[in-house]
Design a protein around this nucleic acid. Structure first.
Length: 630
DNA sequence: CCTTCCCGCCATGGT
DNA sequence: ACCATGGCGGGAAGG
């Protein structure tokens, strides 16, 4: 039992790869105690000690542990210990906790709360008993109460008959629905997402959705506005939206990240890229040059209103800025007060910004329903929100290919458990310059897109071959991987039964740039914007490739489910809604369907999805072709 | 009491 | 003129 109280050393850059870190951690438990465990976040200190004194049951197959760094900061889900279920069905819960060596530590049956508490009291292991139980309860038994069955509801959507309506009403419990919690925006958003999930291209009408979800139309707008700013839905026309799918999120995030990088660049030095930048971040009017000053003056005020013609939905803009905050920050946890200050400015924060704060609550609730953020607390007790998506995703984006490959090679040649501290420090120092470099690369590639793409693909294939030649053991590993991928999927599908949202990152989607960057009318875009969009797509393609490589070199002895639960704080309701997908590192998920991901963007035939999904892209291509013809 | 944030009024602007 | 949108803030529910 005291196994978990041991202090473990954590090397700085082991955040790179959660699976790897996981394995290292497993090794460290089973063999030598001084091996690297993981910290998911970069720490400035050389190492930090982690005490694994708290364990959270976060799902069916695992416990998440939280760890406390020696510098006082607190991070969760740093390491995970796998547990196994005797029975496959969740109802017959006999849970066996085992340490990685395989010895069973404890067995608990039936989610017996008392037993949990006994153990919790008698040992250093701490379980979030009630929350886990609650979690299980809610995802199964209460599914009909809290959730909406997609089949029933969409049938209702089609027929729209009164009888069907009654049936649908029964899905939503009438007695529990009265409390405030059951009317929350986040829950509503959850249901909304459950309703459409990743069924891209499905179209819906605001009034219908409102009817289905039993809310006022006004609430739908709240959600839709946020979803739209994330690219999940697109407005077609009045009262008419199209569901693009939750799998747009990664791309929107990438785009946001890129745009904030660009903004930072502009702030620092006024380079010649300014026009391009302007057209990327704002709507692309003809006055891209002249409209530069008032932007700055507005920025001081705090309440930045982008003078986007019809796109200036305050909630949407605020949402994007909200997210950018996390994408820019080196911390994953930002206190709510800080968010208020950063987004709403100082202001007489008594009455006036009350409205803004209300909106921030709205946004935060919706985003947490999307599993992008989660409510937590800082050590000083301050209410804060935590960004839930793994940071690796974004770090990898801005890592230059060369260095990345170098690193892969290095790590491939030596044991993964070796310390990489020096390497990590170097990386830390050269981080900023490389970002710019990458951006430049991003721009430069636009000039010769098709060629560079060919080259890239070619070089990628070559690399692939090289990799196989390089190490014959690699082949075996690869085969193992082949087996593994379906397993991942199985797990994935299996988990879907518990958490519907897991399924939401559906088919791989192509590059997408949200409206707020491109402006609604793609055909009217100027040349540089198109170029930028293409380069973005190129960029994403590159990222995907890198991720694929990353996955390639992960030693695949065993994959461990990752999780979203992290904080020790939070109401049980919130905990109950935590779903793993957010922590499924995006690349990990993507790697399930690598071929789709690697498909060249301009070759729509090789993409597994119907071309209609890529309306943005297609329009883009069309516009481009028009350009050429003229 | 303070924090959170649901509700719905009503101005605005598209059809 | 109609009505879909969505900014906005009162004030209720939760802690």
């Amino acid at each position: 039992m005291d196994l978990f109280q041991r202090q473990h050393r954590v090397s700085v850059d082991s955040f790179v790869n959660p699976v790897e870190a996981q394995l290292n951690y497993s090794k460290s438990l089973s063999s030598s105690p001084s091996l690297d465990a993981s910290s998911r976040r970069q720490q400035t200190e050389a190492d930090v000690s982690v005490s694994l004194d708290m364990q959270y049951i976060v799902g069916r197959n695992q416990i998440a542990s939280s760890c406390e760094y020696s510098n006082g900061s607190f991070a969760s889900e740093g390491s995970r210990v796998p547990i196994s279920l005797d029975d496959a069905s969740f109802e017959a819960q006999t849970v066996k906790f085992e340490e990685p060596s395989g010895d069973s530590i404890t067995t608990i049956e039936k989610w017996d709360t008392q037993k949990y508490e006994e153990i919790e009291n008698s040992s250093s292991l701490k379980f979030l008993v009630t929350d886990s139980a609650h979690y299980a309860e809610n995802t199964f038994e209460n599914d009909n109460v809290r959730g909406c069955k997609k089949a029933d509801l969409s049938r209702f959507l089609r027929k729209k008959e009164k009888n069907q309506a009654n049936k649908s009403v029964s899905l939503i419990d009438n007695n529990t629905c009265n409390t405030r919690g059951y009317k929350s925006l986040s829950l509503l958003c959850e249901n909304f997402i459950k309703l459409y999930g990743n069924h891209s291209n499905e179209e819906f009408f605001v009034d219908e959705v409102a009817e289905i979800l039993h809310v006022e139309r006004r609430r739908i707008y709240d959600i839709v506005n946020v979803l739209e700013s994330l690219g999940i839905v697109v407005k077609k026309k009045r009262n008419h939206y199209k569901w693009q799918g939750v799998d747009r999120i990664p791309f929107t995030l990438i785009a946001l990240k890129v745009s904030s990088e660009v903004e930072n660049d502009v702030k620092q030095q006024n380079t010649s890229t300014i026009e391009a930048v302007d057209s990327l971040t704002c709507s692309s009017d003809e006055g891209s040059l002249s409209s530069q000053k008032d932007d700055d003056s507005e920025r001081e005020t705090g309440l930045v209103r982008h003078r986007n013609d019809q796109n200036d939905k305050f909630l949407g803009v605020l949402t994007q800025r909200f997210i950018k905050l996390f994408l820019e920050s080196s911390e994953s946890v930002i206190s709510f007060q800080e968010i208020i200050r950063l987004l709403l400015g100082e202001q007489d924060k008594d009455m006036k910004s009350k409205t803004g704060i209300r909106r921030l609550y709205d946004i935060a609730n919706i985003l947490s329903a999307l599993q992008l953020i989660q409510k937590t607390q800082k050590w000083n007790g301050e209410m804060a929100y935590e960004w839930l998506l793994s940071e690796i995703a974004y770090l990898h984006i801005f890592r230059s290919t060369k260095l990345h490959e170098e690193k892969i090679n290095v790590s491939r040649k030596r044991d993964l458990s070796l310390s990489k501290q020096h390497h990590g420090n170097e990386e830390e120092k050269s981080k900023l310059p490389r970002r710019n470099e990458t951006l430049e690369h991003c721009y430069n590639t636009t000039s010769n897109l098709t060629v560079s793409r060919e080259q890239e693909l070619k070089s990628f294939n070559e690399e692939d071959e090289e990799q196989e030649e390089e190490n014959s053991a690699q082949v075996g590993r690869k085969i193992e991987k082949e087996k593994l991928i379906p397993n991942c999927r199985d797990w994935h599908m299996d988990a879907t039964q518990r958490v519907h949202r897991l399924d939401d990152f559906g088919q791989f989607a192509n590059a997408y740039v949200p409206n707020s960057f491109s402006g609604p009318d793609l055909s009217s875009l100027d040349h540089s914007t198109l170029q930028l969009q293409k380069s973005l797509a190129e960029f994403q393609h590159n990222v995907i490739r890198q991720w694929y490589q990353w996955f390639e070199q992960v030693p695949t002895t065993e994959l461990i489910e990752s999780t979203g639960i992290s904080g020790s704080v939070g109401t049980s309701r919130e905990m109950s809604r935590v779903a793993p997908h957010n922590f499924l590192p995006i690349p990990f998920y993507w790697s399930i369907r690598p071929l789709a991901g690697i498909a060249p963007i301009d070759d729509s035939s090789s993409i597994c999805e119907p071309a209609s999904t890529y309306s943005v892209k297609n329009e883009n291509v069309e516009a481009e072709e028009e350009d050429r013809q003229q």
